[in-house]
Every structure is written in structure tokens, then in C-alpha cells.
Design a protein around this nucleic acid. Structure first.
Lengths: 253, 253
DNA sequence: AAGTGGTCTAGACCACTAT
DNA sequence: TAGTGGTCTAGACCACTTT
């Protein structure tokens, strides 16, 4: 009867199913999101008040609150105290690219080949980044990450050399690179700074990645700190531009 | 007495200030985060149970819940029903780069110069992307974004031509580009797909951006959909690799 | 004054995990 | 069985905005 379009049933029904395995607040958020998506509330427009939603859907104020909070977290609506809840317009600046695609590549058929590992005396920049003295020793490592036997990532980095902390040995292993992505890595690391750049590959980088020049690539610079807030490593992942893209979506659906 | 290190006072006190303007749940989350950051709970270790926190800090279960939820949202802890709450290890794969840096550039001293706008017959790829027929007309626009009078972004794109919807005129304006970033843009757009690539600039791109070849740059491809889920535009922002970097942090602090 | 979102309570009940 | 997180209630009180 109410099937306006003769297709599949609507994925979200406009009422709360008390026996569902989905929490009520998730159901309510889904209902509202679906209504916004269908155009019932346009960007800039006001949603029904929380009190109204409480009456409409017969749930407690706290549950409505949680549903609305979900939508604010998802960048779908904004709330203004004393005024109401409003639908947000799509915002390019809110787009976020995460490294899960990269993570997927690592969990694949990945093999790390250690190209070089040696002690080096820190130059001015390295010393500053690792917060050590110029001329102090650090460990310089170069590694190549092969995926399906093809060179995919070239990693160079400096590691703090501290005989009292056995972080160095483990850092050389494959597992650490993987662990960095999936969170099974060293519990000694407290935080990290990352920055990403698009740049021309150097001759060395192109040679080791087996691409011909000129070529563009990603440079992912990273620095990690321990729980004393002291740097433990600084380096770059380099990857040919053709080898991956970052993807994301904004808005609804 | 309890000043172990004779420095500044600790920024977060290990108790709840009922008169603070910060909500209790935020204060509690801060306390726990600070304790984790200080090494009181290491990655993998278990936090005190919620019941324990209720007793310790004299707050209601719901308030503890909100504090813990904050920390899970911030990727600091994970909860496992029936087992407990555990500190997360730093996870590279969870790193997310957002375009707020880019947004900042747009809100600066930005001027859009319309380079070209004309009707084109859609080729196979354009037709597919805009979900129109091959040979149907679309609008092709090229724009240059100047920041402090320097060419910064080169934007090319195809727009749906639909006389019934006056989206075209407004799309040509500066405000739309800005609005896309800050969310004041068209309320007609429901969602978008974005993808980012590192690539060599073409001769045309390099010329218009006034850089010499070879050069590497960012390609930000975007496609936007209206509330009928029909594509309204498809295009790319191109930018010289030196002109910006993406930054982010993972872990605590 | 009336209406809005924001916080917080003090419990109840449930689902899951360990022992 | 005891302990854990997860949901939900039915209100109270507050801060803010609009009329």
C-alpha cells in the first residue's frame, strides 16, 4: 500500500524496534540521518527539538541526546544551546583521509628487506629531530618493503641508540612495521607526528623502487616519541605516486 | 610536600572540581588521559573498572561512561564487554589527515580567476562520472586560485548542465569554492567522494601554476552528488607539491 | 516566560567473560 | 557466581536564546 516505488523495502523504518539488537539511540540516529538524507530536513534547517523527539519516539531524554550526539560526531548536524539542532552543509575542510588503505597493503603479502643499518654521527638536523647532540651516534636504517615481490615502499630512518633500551633490535624487524599499523606494535611509543608531502623522487629512491625518472611520489615523514616524550625515531616512507591513492567521503550515505 | 619535581604545577589535578566550567565527564577523561600519558597505565594494560571509578571519583555510572566513551572516540582506549577497558597502542593506520590546512589557505587572501567556461559534449569517461549520456552537454570550467596574488590551486571540473537548476551560475563564483570548505556552500549538495594522488604535473598545469618541469603535485579529485544522488560536478584541484603538506598526530598529547 | 540544548543522578536491567 | 561493560530510564537542574 505504502510502497510508492515498487522496489526493495526501505532499509530504515521510522519507528523504534524495542526488540532489535541495535541500541535505541543508534536506531533513532539512523532514522534522523535517513530523513535528512531523503531531504526531509535540508542543510541549515532545524531538526525537531529533543523534547519533541522524546514524545514522538517514546524514549527518554538521555537516549535522544545520545542519538543527536552521534550525528554531531558524524558531522551531520550541529547543536546550538538555546536555539536548536541544525543540519550541516557538506564541508570539504572536514574531509579526512586515513591510512587504512596503506594499512591494508601492509597486511597483505609484505616482506621487509633490510638494505642497510649502520651507526652514524648525527648531523645538525638529525640531532635536532632526535633531541640529541650533534655528533652523537644514532642508527640509520634503510629498508625496502616488497608487496607481492614488487618494491612498494622505501623506508629510511634514524633511531635513537640507547644500549639500555633494547628498542633497536626489534625496530629492525618486519613485525614492527606491521605492528605500527595495526596497533600491536611497541607499547613503548606514546605518540607520533606525521606529515605527508608530494615530491619528485630522487635518483636513489627511483632506483630502489624500480621506477624511471622523473617520477612523483609520496613522502610520509614520521617521528615517534616514548613515554618520557623523547624522540625514538625519525624517518620517511617513500612510495611511487601510482602505487596508491587516498580515498574518503563526506556528507551522507 | 608532594612536589616531587620543583617545577610548574600539574596541569590536571586528580580530582573532580564541581565548580569548574568544564563538565565532570571531560574532567574525568582528562584525568585518565593524563594518567595514561604519564605512564600509570601502559598500552595493553587495564584501566580501573567503571564501578571502581564511580567510587573513586564519586560520580554516577553514566558520567564515568561518558568519560570512557570520550577516550574510546579519541583512540586512547578500547572497551571489551565483560572484560574491561584497556589502553590502546599507537596505531599508524588510525592516523587521519584532514584538509583543515587547505581550508586555512582558502580563507586567507584568496581570489578566484575564471580561466575558461564552456559547453562540452561529454566523452565516455565524463558521461560515466556525471551519469549522463555520451555527447550530452556539460559545462567545463577552469579556474585558478590565487593566494596573495600567487597561483596556488588550479581547478578543472565538469558541471551538470540543467536549465531547471540554477546551480551553474553559482558554481562559477568564488564563494562556492570557499563555501565548500567552510560549510556555507550549496545546501543542494548531499555528499561527495574525494581521492588524492601524488603525480607529475602536466605541461599545462605547470604553466598555469608557474612552476618549472618536472614538478610533483597533488591531485585532489572530487565528485559531488545532490539529494537525488545524481552527480552535479566532477573535477580536480591541482597544487604544486611544495605548496602544502598534510600534518597529523597520533597517540597522546 | 517559554523553549532550547547540556549535564548529571541513582539506579535497573542486560550481555558478556572469567573462575 | 561475580565482575565487567552497555543501555535505558525519568527526572532534576542549569545555561542560553528568543519572544
Amino acid at each position: 500500500m505504502s510502497e510508492l516505488k515498487g522496489g526493495a523495502a526501505a532499509p530504515v523504518r521510522p519507528y523504534i524496534d524495542r526488540d532489535s539488537d541495535q541500541p535505541v539511540y543508534v536506531q533513532l540516529a539512523d532514522i534522523l540521518r535517513q530523513q535528512i538524507s531523503a531531504g526531509a530536513f535540508r542543510p541549515g534547517e532545524q531538526l525537531p527539538s529533543e523534547a519533541m523527539l522524546v514524545r514522538t519516539y517514546q524514549v527518554s531524554p538521555m537516549t535522544v541526546r545520545r542519538a543527536i550526539n552521534l550525528l554531531t560526531d558524524q558531522n551531520v548536524v550541529t547543536t546550538v544551546q538555546g536555539r536548536g539542532t541544525f543540519v550541516k552543509a557538506v564541508q570539504l575542510g572536514a574531509a579526512a583521509f586515513d591510512l587504512s588503505d596503506l594499512q591494508a597493503m601492509f597486511s597483505d603479502d609484505a616482506v621487509v628487506k633490510l638494505v642497510e643499518a649502520r651507526f652514524v654521527a648525527a648531523d645538525e638536523r638529525t640531532a635536532r629531530k632526535l633531541q640529541i647532540e650533534v655528533g652523537e651516534y644514532a642508527i640509520y636504517i634503510r629498508r625496502l618493503l616488497l608487496i607481492h615481490n614488487e618494491p612498494a615502499f622505501y623506508h629510511r630512518g634514524y633511531l635513537i641508540y640507547d644500549p639500555t633500551r633494547p628498542i633497536v633490535e626489534s625496530e629492525l624487524e618486519v613485525t614492527v612495521l606491521k605492528g605500527l599499523f595495526d596497533g600491536t606494535g611497541s607499547p613503548l611509543i606514546k605518540r607520533g607526528e606525521l606529515s605527508m608531502e608530494a615530491a619528485l623522487l630522487t635518483e636513489e629512491e627511483a632506483a630502489i623502487l624500480q621506477v624511471s625518472l622523473p617520477a612523483a611520489g609520496w613522502l610520509l615523514e614520521h617521528r615517534f616519541f616514548d613515554f618520557d616524550d623523547k624522540p625514538v625515531s625519525w624517518g620517511w616512507f617513500v612510495c611511487h605516486g601510482d602505487r596508491f591513492r587516498l580515498h574518503t567521503k563526506i556528507g551522507l550515505e
